[in-house]
Amino acid sequence: MQRAIETHKLGKVFRSGFLLKKIPALSDVSLNVEPGTTFGFLGPNGAGKTTTIKLLLGLIRPTFGEARIFGKSVDEVSVRAKIGFLPERPYFYEYLTGLEFLHFCGELFGLNQTDRSRKIESLLNLVHLKGAEHTQLRQYSKGMLQRIGLAQALINDPVLVVLDEPMSGLDPIGRKQVRDIMLHLKEMGKTIFFSTHILSDAELICDQVAILIKGTLKSQGKLESLLDPKTYSIDVCLRGVAPEKFQTIESISNTVVCHNETYTVSVSDESCLSRLLAWVIQEKGQLISVTPRKESLEDMFLEEIQESTR
């Protein structure tokens, strides 16, 4: 089966200023995105995520390497018929109404009037913009712009949806709305490739992730396989034990945090845990919760950045 996205040692050097100074933005990025996956493209701001996405859409030309979408070179215009794209912080023609804008986008895909009207109707429902379609885009809020952006990206029923920072700059409700739409697309079996620097978003919806730091790809793979499965520590929450009693468990744990007469004790492994639990019962304490802490994307992300700056 053809890969949805496939890049081979993709690199980009920008030339800027009067002297055409070379500014490397991206090097040796080899990505593989299988069809049907939701692929999170992670990295801090300025890592080169948007550059990669622009290369994938032929908006800029690679200095090195090549990018293919469904087996075809991204230079081929026809390939874009299968893609839906939402740019970062989208901004559209101010003076068009939402409806006019979507019709315009549909026309660019060569859709006829009836197909467009039908498609737009269902998209407006999907992105919850029914009722706002006759308003000019300059009166749209940020969240509305993001959602009309999603609608225009979906007008051609794309097989691959490319979203650049779809949730940045939105309030929690806006983020949830966008996330729900993405989950809906995932259910429909679309391949989603999206970039973000907000890790919790990725953790919630991604099957696969790639991490880009300073223009180079650090790791790529299934989210579970990238994360260390081993448990870091176990947090035990308890109350009802006198503070001075905690001196007796110094051998088990040295991190005790007290908050509102609730104590959180961190232990490193299972044997310590059973000793701690025995101690709680012995002291007639009240056990609230036991939470194992696994490596999160956040931890991994920080690790990678620390490594690359070292």
Partner: peptide, 14 residues
Amino acid sequence: PLVVNMKDAFVHKM
């Protein structure tokens, strides 16, 4: 084979 294929395509494109 992928790399060779891409190279060919590249030359062709040029």
